[in-house]
Every structure is written in C-alpha cells, then in structure tokens.
Design a protein around this nucleic acid. Sequence first.
DNA 1: AATATTATTTCAAGTACTTGAATTTTTTTG
DNA 2: CAAAAAAATTCAAGTACTTGAAATAATATT
Lengths: 335, 335
Amino acid sequence: MVSLKDIANVCNVSESTVSKALKGHPMIKLGTRKKIQEVALKYNYQPNALVESMQTGRSKTIGIAYNNFYDSFAGGILTGVFEKLCAAGYETMIICWDVLVSHEAQVFSRFSRRRVDGLLFFPPMKIPGSNYLKELRDFHNPIVVIDQTWPGNEFNYVGSDNVRGAALATEHMIERGISDIGFIKYSVVSSGTERWQGFVETMQKHGLPVKDSWCVDVGKLPNYGYELILKMLSKPGRPEGLVCFNDNCAYQAMAAANELGIRIPEELSLIGFGDIMLSTIMRPKLTTVKQFPEDIGRKAADILLESIKKRDEPYVPQSILMPEELICRDSVRRQ
Amino acid sequence: MVSLKDIANVCNVSESTVSKALKGHPMIKLGTRKKIQEVALKYNYQPNALVESMQTGRSKTIGIAYNNFYDSFAGGILTGVFEKLCAAGYETMIICWDVLVSHEAQVFSRFSRRRVDGLLFFPPMKIPGSNYLKELRDFHNPIVVIDQTWPGNEFNYVGSDNVRGAALATEHMIERGISDIGFIKYSVVSSGTERWQGFVETMQKHGLPVKDSWCVDVGKLPNYGYELILKMLSKPGRPEGLVCFNDNCAYQAMAAANELGIRIPEELSLIGFGDIMLSTIMRPKLTTVKQFPEDIGRKAADILLESIKKRDEPYVPQSILMPEELICRDSVRRQ
DNA sequence: AATATTATTTCAAGTACTTGAATTTTTTTG
DNA sequence: CAAAAAAATTCAAGTACTTGAAATAATATT
C-alpha cells in the first residue's frame, strides 16, 4: 500500500506538504499542489482511514447487532440503514446474534475495541435468558434499539406502530360485517404482544368478545403453528375471521383451511402482517398490514447520527413508531 | 474510553509495563501483573483495535461487496461467511451494490481506505454496464468471487455446481418417463446459463429434443415472468414437465397452471432450484434442487483466510463448485 | 561491602497521518 | 542591497499502543 511518505519521496517534499496539498490547502503553492495531486492519483494513493480514526477518536463506523440474514423484513431495515449511513460517510460493522456468539459481553467488547461511534441494536431473539441491559447501559456511545423493544426501554427506539396496525386490521374485518374474529398470537416478540393488544382493544371498543379458543399462540412453534391452527379450525364453532401475527402465519392458516375444505374468504377471512412478496403466487391474494422496513432503518440511522452529533448534550431518548398501512386484497370477504 | 495510559497512571507504572502485564508477559512480576489486570478489568479497559491494525498493517477486517439484504439465499452464504470469519477473529465491512453506490471505483477505494485484508466479491447484478475487472485486478489483497462468475474469471471462485444440479433435475424427470421437457431460463446471471447448459446437455445425452417454444427466458421480468409462462402454457402442445431456474419461477409456473386448470403433477411436472421455505404452505410440495448456501459461505471464507495467510506465495486461484442435491417431493408425476 | 547476576521496569522508536508553530524561501519595499 | 513582509515549506508533537534495548532495582556471590 502506497503511503503519504511514498508520495512525499517521489515529489521531494515533506509529508506535511503532501498532506496539505491533497486537502487542497491554499497555503501550498498551486504548482506543487497540482504536481502532488497528480502523483497521488498516478500511484492510486488511498489515505489510511485507521489513522484518521485514531487521531480524531471517531472511527466513522457504526456497530450493528443483528439477528440473522434470512429475514427480508430485517433486510429491509438494513437497507434503509445503509442508505443513510453510506450517505453520511459511515461504514458498518455487523455482529450476528445467531452466528457463533456465546456470550453477549463479547459482542459489546468487539464493538468497543473497534471503537464504533454508535450502535444499532436489534434485540436478540434466540438467546435464552438473554440479559444485555447492563451491557447496553455501560456502552459509552449512542444507541438506537430497532424493531423489538421491552417494557421500560430507556434507549432510543424505532419500530412499527403495531398496536395501530392491528387495530386497522381488526376494524377492517368488523367493517365488513365480521364479528367472530380470532387471533394468531406470537407472544415471544414485542411486536407480537403489541398486535395482540391492538386487536383486544379494538374488539373491546366495538363491544365484541375475544374468545380464548379462537386465539392461539404460535410463538416458536414449527411452521408458524400450522398444526395448532389446523386443530383450532377443525373444532366446531370456528371464527369467521382470523387476524394473524404475520403473513407466514396467515399463509399457514390458508394452508390449514385448504386442508379442511374451508373456502377463503367466503367461510374464513384472513389478514396478515408484513406484505411479504407471496401475493403474486398465492390465491386468494392476501389482505395484509404492510410495514415499511426501509423507513424504519432510515429513521433509526437518522436518530443515531443525530445522537452522535449531539453526544455532549444531555441524553433525551426518542421513541418513534412508524405507521403501518392496510393493503386490501382478496382474503377478507365482502359484505 | 479508558486507555493504557489511564491504567498506567492508576497503577503508577509505565505504559509498557501495562501493555506487557495485560498480555501475561512473565517478565512482569506476578504481583504487578495481577494488580494491573484487576485494574484493567475494573475499568473495563478495551484495547484499541485500530492501533493494533496500524502497527501490524492488518486490519483484521474482510470487505464484502454484497448485492442486497432481501435474498435469503445470499443471506445463507453470509451466514456461513460470518461463522468462519468470527471464529478466526475477523470483523466485516459490507458494501451493498444496491444501496446508493454510484461508481464502482468508490466501492474499492472505500475498502482500500479501511485497509481490509481481503475481499469477498458478490458480482453486482443491477449495475448496467458494470466493469469491475480493472478494479479487481488492481486490488492489492486476496479476493474470492462468490455465487456468480463470468467467462475467464481469473480469481478464486466459490459457487454451486449448477450444471450438475440441472442435470440431476432433468434426469429425474426423464427417469419418471417425462420426455417433453421445457425450461424456464434466467440468462442474466451465470447460474442461469449454467443450469440451462446442464439441461441442454442432459437432453442431448438422452437423445431428446430441446424445443425452443418450451424454453422461455424470464430474466429481469416482473414476477419471474408469470405472463410469459402463462402464454407458453396456454399454447397447444405444451410440455409435460418444466425445469425452472429457481423455486420462484416454479411457483409462478404453478400459479399459471392453476390459472389454466392444468393439474400438477398429473398434467405438468415442475422442478425448482433453491428449496426456499414455501414447501410448508404450497401444495403440491415442490420438488427442487437444494443448494447449500451456508457451505458456499464457509468455503469462500476458508479460501480467503488461506489466501491471506499465504499472501506472499505465488497466487494460484481456486475454483470450487459445491454440490447441489435433488429433493423429491410431489411436483413431479410418478410413472 | 563491592561486584556480579538476575529480575523488573522504563525508554524510545515506530505505525501513518494532521496541525499549528517555527523555519526557510521568495518577493516587496525603502 | 539590506530589511521587512509575505509566501511556502518543514518541524515536532500528538493519536494509543508494541517491542527490543537500555536502565534500574533487587538479590546472590565472593
């Protein structure tokens, strides 16, 4: 790798002259400046970013604690994050909870040693008895928690307005004259409990009962609880509609309904969450509550960059819920 | 951030004593060593990795030029990559072609400035007129190209054995007595042309004709060419079987068949590629050629780390094709 | 007790670059 | 043409740490 020194030697000037010339410092004579810039270009000189980081104490790197690379919703968030960080001249360092991470402490020390300027924190889903709160509190840089949260979260947070999203879905069914509504729960994540809350509140608001037997929790079950859903639907007195934690659950419900010969939407209406791109191949096309993962990512990056800029001011954590949107397709019956 | 100096001041010793004590150097008196280690622990001292990188000239960081975060196949590759790199003490720096990258040169200079020790290169799919060959050749560190390649690729390469995979799929249909076989092409990527090659070779080997009208190219078309497939299937004299570039194409073909009232597998057999996890909801369950993205990632990381270790020895590029495996399910008719 | 030996700690230089101060070179002025 | 002023360049210190050599302290030997 060619260094400042190499350029200096070739040009017969000192390193500091080269340094200033390459920054376009007007103090350096135009002729010298041009010549140095030409030589630097010719040798494809690339300044060592590590040195700059050391000097400024800013690595211009953001740490990202991520769950896994299979989930396209999280992938959408990352896309938004990268868009903003790239534009702001930051690079990223990703650590994946699911990939060979034994102790959480290691995650934080890996970020610390690389001196990341801030942290985008996707709470781990698969680590049992996870207790990262102490590490987060001890972390000496701005943090934004993304997508999932917990009661009493004292950090910046960006997620979806799941309570409202579930209300939207439930209202839609009620508007279409459906009142026997069940819910496919997924309680192991905060978005799951939030959607459940939105469902329950909306049912109560309309004076409709929430029937326990129509509400199954499929969190951590294989195939998003296909078996459980099948069992629930085969009992007599099944619901007319099912609000599902996400599109995968909804498609499992669709598969179960097909198995049982229940017609959708005539005999069973279905709403999912997420709008994963299966609506081009699955019939009927699924009505769903669309999320905007890229927006979540962009917003999270914005808040983090802002917090980094204001690192010396007193810490005022922000909590932002991005709106969700109902996409009406063909899986809810018309009146 | 607490530094070596801080620890030295607290312990009333010099920085070099602290440095050696923390490395467990036996030259430092046991008492002093223990005390320094305790203080370092108490203050949660984390050595600055940037400094180490500067001194050794090794950043212990691998650059990854990636396409997008939505594709779970590429996500599987990344997972395997992270597994190996994490175990070897490397961090990663990802740049995404699809996220705000105007010039390719910028990608390489971003990697160069951060002094990455090696590069995992996913060839860009969406950049028109892309010409990264010069940049790759000028890059002063080991490179492994992943998943997609090009004629005359002179770098390390790890991908799938698509020719053989397509042969496997085609053989399977022929074994089941299907001889009127069409192919859904996806020519814009190298894996697409390789699968096409495997199909053609196998058909020729069995003396079967490759009928142009049964072979449509859906590369870059919306919905994996649903419309084209629909048109092809509605013409008289349609094929008995269709080997499809990937599972998405196969599911689009399935949707088209449903639309036309063609029964699968009785009237049309289908094989996909990739085994994306839709087989739990789609009926009939898709027969497919499974790939092992994590293995590709692991192998690529291995080769890169090896090349980094042997950076001074003469360069002998490796080209490795990981096997694919036929998963028989229900979308190919039995004899 | 003086010296030799060993144990322990510190010094100084190097990593690649930036920055304000100091120095050198060039130009202007009396 | 010398002194002053301005312009251009270089010096030196700092960033956080490592490393072998040098210095110092402690212990052993005569």
